[in-house]
């Protein structure tokens, strides 16, 4: 599946009647890389969940590759090309690594498995291990690899580096960068490690209290340290 354009217009969403994000409007071009930054609890995860159809939609539209996703369920959005790697690193615990990867796939699985193992050699070594027997980093790799098995055109990554050792973070970001360079998918990354997120992305959107308060090129944000400190509460090296 080729990378698709993501267009979000006046999106408001939350859980039940509670609005967490309000009036968000942004676009990511085909093959583009957007980082969504913000302090804890500002609605970054809710935004990704609403793109995936996992939260309550209040208002606005979400379009992927020109197709309106607004009323679709999560499973339909996944089939339409949205891949979501949640913060919780969900893997199917009673299945082995290999079973996790091939679950629900149609047709021949060998080629798809080879691709996944080429991207994550560690998973090939652990192919017979159950989800519960994996380290945090391995679970994150498996969660990402499983999502990639669906050949998404739009990949949503929710804090993929959370709780991982720096060396694993490096490996994972290298893999994600490789995916981005392939041009086969558009990537939206939510991440607390701001330096890494800015190194990876082309454009960035900063969220505060569920609203977009800054959007632009990564270089622009880097060069304005005052904005970074005010909006994100951190300094950049």
């Amino acid at each position: 599946m080729a990378a698709t354009r993501l267009e979000v217009s006046n999106l408001s969403a939350g859980y039940g009647p509670t609005r967490i994000v309000s009036n968000l409007t942004f676009e990511v071009a085909e093959g583009g890389r957007l980082a969504i930054l913000g302090r804890n609890g500002v609605g970054k995860t809710t935004l990704l969940a609403s793109l995936m159809g996992l939260s309550t939609h209040h208002d606005g539209t979400i379009s992927v590759g020109g197709m309106n996703m607004t009323g679709l369920k999560a499973s339909a959005r996944a089939r339409a090309g949205i891949g979501y790697v949640p913060q919780t690193r969900d893997v199917f615990r009673s299945l082995t690594v290999e079973e996790n990867l091939v679950t629900g796939l149609k047709g021949r699985t060998t080629e798809a498995l080879e691709e996944a193992y080429a991207l994550f050699p560690r998973l090939a070594e652990r192919r017979k291990h159950f989800g519960t027997q994996l380290s945090g980093g391995e679970q994150q790799m498996l969660s990402l690899a499983r999502t990639l098995m669906g050949k998404p055109s739009l990949l949503l990554l929710d804090e993929p580096l959370e709780g991982l050792a720096p060396v694993i973070c490096d490996q994972l970001m290298l893999t994600i960068a490789k995916l981005a360079e392939s041009g086969e998918m558009t990537i939206v990354l939510v991440e607390q490690q701001i330096e890494r997120a800015l190194d990876f992305a082309e454009s960035v959107m900063v969220i505060e209290r569920g609203r977009s308060v800054w959007a632009g090129e990564c270089g622009e944000l880097r060069s304005d340290r005052k904005i970074v400190e005010r909006l994100l509460g951190v300094g950049l090296h």
């Binding site: 969900d90 199917f92 009673s94 299945l95 079973e99 679950t103 629900g104 999502t147």
Partner: peptide
Amino acid sequence: LLCRAIKDDSLRARMIG
């Protein structure tokens, strides 16, 4: 396998389509 995956975590199963 998908049925076992649904038993493990039906929401995650929905997220893979």
